[in-house]
Amino acid sequence: MRDTQPLDELIRKLSELMPESVRHMQGDIERNLKAGLAGALQRMELVTREEYEVQAKLLARSRERLAELEARVAALEDALRPDMSSSSQKSGPPEE
């Protein structure tokens, strides 16, 4: 469940900025503002801080794992290079 306190606070501040002549409709205005802002935020497909943190940690672990795998591949390639060069030297140039 998302915390609605910041949204409620923003709506309260916006309704306080209304001219005195429309303050008698403050309750209606606050409800309409809340519905409008909630709809706009929903369309933005925002994520919670918690969801963001989970994904950031997952990405960090994935990057670490990728770096480890890249190092292993490089080590295996290095281990194969001397074998390849020595096998090509043993066979010599192709005969015609």
Score class of each variant (00 low, 15 high):
E50H: 02
M18S: 07
M18T: 01
A40C: 12
E50C: 01
N32E: 15
N32A: 13
V22S: 10
E51L: 05
E16W: 14
A40W: 11
G27P: 00
M25L: 13
E16P: 00
H24L: 10
P19A: 00
P19Y: 02
T48Q: 08
V47K: 08
E20H: 04
R43Q: 15
S21R: 09
G39I: 11
E30V: 03
P19M: 01
E51G: 03
Y52F: 15
L17G: 14
L37W: 02
K34G: 11
Q26L: 01
L33A: 05
T48H: 09
R49V: 13
E16L: 14
L17S: 12
E50Y: 06
E16I: 01
A38L: 12
N32I: 11
L41R: 14
N32R: 13
Q26P: 00
H24E: 14
R43I: 11
L46M: 13
D28H: 05
E30N: 05
H24C: 05
V47E: 08
M18R: 03
E30D: 01
D28V: 04
A35D: 15
H24R: 12
R43F: 12
Q42V: 03
L37K: 11
E20I: 10
E16R: 15
A38M: 13
A40T: 04
G36Q: 15
M18C: 02
R31D: 05
A38Q: 09
M44A: 15
G39E: 10
E20Q: 15
R23N: 12
M44T: 03
M25Y: 12
M44H: 01
H24K: 09
M18P: 01
E50V: 06
L17H: 11
L46E: 08
L41A: 10
Q26A: 08
M18A: 04
A38C: 10
E20V: 04
L46C: 13
R49P: 00
Q26I: 11
L17R: 15
M25P: 01
G36A: 09
V22G: 07
E30C: 02
R31F: 03
R43W: 02
R31Q: 02
S21P: 00
M44P: 00
P19L: 04
G36Y: 13
E16G: 12
T48Y: 09
